[in-house]
């Protein structure tokens, strides 16, 4: 079954890049512009994994994680945080918020795909 990815990022550029990389890896990738839209999309069509930005208008990445983890269903879907921050305390903060993992921007195509495979159990 094709892995469904939901990418949430306010940057059109990053959204397109993620979508391309996911598409190349054979995954389906839905997109959302900000946290509010992302959470709505998540519940409309629950994905196998969420990739979210942290700094976004309307609702940030932590808000997205809280909304998904606090939801009644699909609350344990892996959520990967896409961030430019590599500082350990920020990773810890993401983990405390409930992130499954993180990918540091600028991301390496192979690395992001391998992380997605890793948390979804998808095999190449």
């Amino acid at each position: 079954m094709t892995i469904k990815v939901l990418a949430i990022d306010d940057s059109r550029t990053i959204r397109s890049l993620v979508q391309k990389v996911m598409g190349d890896a054979g995954f389906d990738c839905a997109l959302a512009d900000d946290g509010v839209q992302g959470v709505a999309r998540f519940h409309e069509d629950p994905p196998d994994v969420v990739i979210t930005d942290i700094n976004m208008p309307n609702m940030d990445g932590y808000g997205v994680i809280a909304a998904i983890r606090g939801g009644a269903i699909h609350r344990n879907v892996p959520i990967l945080v896409l961030t430019t921050e590599s500082a350990p305390h920020l990773k810890a903060k993401a983990r405390e918020a409930g992130a499954t993992g993180w990918i540091v921007k600028p991301f390496d195509d192979a690395a992001i795909v391998s992380v997605v495979r890793r948390v979804t159990g998808a095999r190449a």
């Binding site: 550029t13 700094n55 976004m56 921007k105 991301f107």
Partner: peptide
């Protein structure tokens, strides 16, 4: 303002 600079940085990195 912060997000604007942040997003430019993110895209530029890519």
């Amino acid at each position: 303002v912060f997000r604007a600079v942040h997003s430019i940085k993110g895209g530029a990195g890519a």
